[in-house]
Design a protein around this nucleic acid. Structure first.
Lengths: 102, 102
DNA sequence: TTGCACTTGACACTATATGTCAAATGTGGT
DNA sequence: ACCACATTTGACATATAGTGTCAAGTGCAA
């Protein structure tokens, strides 16, 4: 899994590889070109729905792109906490516990 | 670290153990009693600042309470994703990478 | 039945997220 | 240099989520 690349970078690379324009992809997402530009450069966050649509449009694996997107948000929120590492360990345990309860 | 207890439960237990009233603790936090009641029952989220003040007031270790609080938010957001486990693994790597860049 | 702690729900205010639009900037071709 | 078109930028609008107050309601113990 890609750790050193941002979600925006992945999206831009994939779009250019397919020869698509911002305008074209933005139209499929039903948003203004400006937003997609900002998403690719990391100035704005995409929504989860946009990420899933983008995986379709750009022929990326939905799960992998989603993991990139979700983990980036989490990492960004935690990077300035010095308890970040332990927090993620505990979060794993809590997720496992909550899933088992469902 | 405590995985099966919510932050709210920890806060309520600790407050009651010290014999403090909602009213008293809420006053120290400078919020209405209603909010603290909701925080303890999990109906609302505390802010990070409130968590740190509460650790002081209730003689809890700041780091541990913060980890509880942060991991609970993350776990709650991810529990309905079936990529939750992998997401947290990648998030750990991303945090490590981002911290090394800083 | 009164008093006190706590809970509940309606509401208000603020901050953040998400979007549009138009003008500015960059880029490749002629 | 100029043009056409892709992208970027910033001002602004709207929607949603977060944080709070207040007052009335609930429960319990003296």
């Amino acid at each position: 899994m890609n750790v050193k690349q941002t979600t925006g970078e992945i999206l831009r690379e994939s779009r250019e590889k397919k020869g698509l324009l911002l305008r074209q992809v933005a139209a499929l997402l039903d948003i203004d070109t400006a937003i997609l530009s900002k998403i690719e450069r990391g100035e704005r966050k995409a929504t989860k729905e946009q990420i899933l649509k983008l995986a379709d449009i750009l022929d990326l694996k939905k799960d992998e792109l989603l993991i990139q997107y979700l983990s980036e948000k989490i990492a960004y929120d935690l990077v300035n906490e010095d308890v970040a590492g332990k927090t993620l360990k505990v979060a794993e345990q809590k997720v496992a516990y909550l899933k088992s309860k469902k």
